[in-house]
Simulated scan of single mutants.
Amino acid sequence: MAIKHVRSSEAGMTVEEFKDWLMRFDDDCDGRISKDELRKAIRSIGVRFSWWKSRRGIRLSDSNNDGLLDDGEIDNLVSFMQKDLGLKITAKN
């Protein structure tokens, strides 16, 4: 499923599909998402002010305040992406 069409899709995507999509932006392949990597992901779906929204997404999702989102913290990011960006992400198909 193409992420660009998620905003208008009724079905949306699963959390696992979202994580797989997000990890495509993990430029340094460390398994964590930085603010710059999140900015690229947000920009790729056509959201305006990606620099501000990526900073906010990291701030709200980063539980240990290291500036990076690991697998456990990406669950927090799912909530941000749903509420603030309007993405439809479901627990299961």
Rank of each mutant, 00 (worst) to 15 (best):
N76Y: 08
S54D: 06
R56T: 12
D30G: 04
D66K: 06
R43K: 14
L77G: 04
R7W: 07
R55V: 06
A2I: 09
S9D: 13
G12F: 08
N93V: 05
K92H: 14
L87Q: 08
G72V: 02
L87V: 11
D26Q: 02
D66I: 06
D28S: 10
G12H: 06
S79A: 13
S44G: 01
K53V: 04
S79Y: 12
E10T: 14
K40A: 11
I3V: 15
R55Y: 11
D27F: 00
A2P: 15
E10G: 12
I89W: 10
F80Y: 15
F49T: 04
K4D: 11
D84T: 07
F49A: 11
S79W: 09
R24I: 09
L68W: 15
M81K: 03
K83M: 08
L85K: 05
G67K: 02
D75C: 05
V47W: 05
F18V: 05
G46L: 10
K92S: 14
L22R: 04
T90W: 11
I3C: 11
E37F: 00
I58P: 01
K83V: 11
E16M: 11
L60Y: 06
E16K: 13
L87W: 08
D26E: 03
M81H: 03
V78R: 03
G86P: 02
S63A: 14
R32A: 13
T90V: 15
G57I: 05
F80N: 12
F80M: 10
K40F: 00
S63T: 13
I74T: 12
G31Y: 07
L77C: 04
S9Y: 04
S8G: 15
F80C: 14
S8Q: 14
D75E: 11
N65F: 10
G72M: 06
K19D: 05
E73N: 03
A11N: 13
W52A: 15
H5N: 12
L68K: 13
K88C: 11
D27Q: 04
